[in-house]
Amino acid sequence: MSGIIHAFTTQIPDWRPRVRPVDLAEATPEQLDALKVTPSNTKVSDYVLVLANDVETLKVRTPLFNAIMYNRGGLSRAERELGAVGASVVNRCVYCAAVHASRFNQLTKDERVMERIFRDGEAARLDARQAAIFRFAVKLSKAPSEADEADMQALRDAGLDDGEILDLILSAALFGWANRLMHVLGDPVAREDPE
């Protein structure tokens, strides 16, 4: 059994559930539909199989997630990932941070931003626009939210328009949700190499 990973990393871990995933062989038609299981696609992660225990929420959350992270216009994809990482750092979701830091790195071809964030956490020094985005995401992710007028003004001063700010609010808030599933219902564990 692999050990639990506690430090932030861009190496995507495995995820070990703390509750029982739905067994595909016993899944209801509604669960199979929400899981998008077809004869040619039977690969479903343990994480999604855990969420299938609440199929009504899963069914509506998946399209919401995709719309917030990938729909057209507004904030760049990389900056939405930065918002997701800000939330994941506050909530210490090592798995979420790994996935979304990796996506950020793929999109920007620049690993230094995530290196700084993983090393210095909320205090990471970034360029002005990234700093405003990261700081807003971090403060919105506190409970209760600590984001204030100055943080909003910093976004506007960094050149974000209303559509971009809205997308940042949505991506950071969405990870308040994702972190509370991924970090609560399972553990990130070292990936077992098939070799």
Partner: peptide, 12 residues
């Protein structure tokens, strides 16, 4: 988890 999201969208 949903509530955490909703509360932050409203705050933002």
């Amino acid at each position: 988890a949903f509530l955490a999201y909703q509360i932050r969208v409203i705050a933002g």
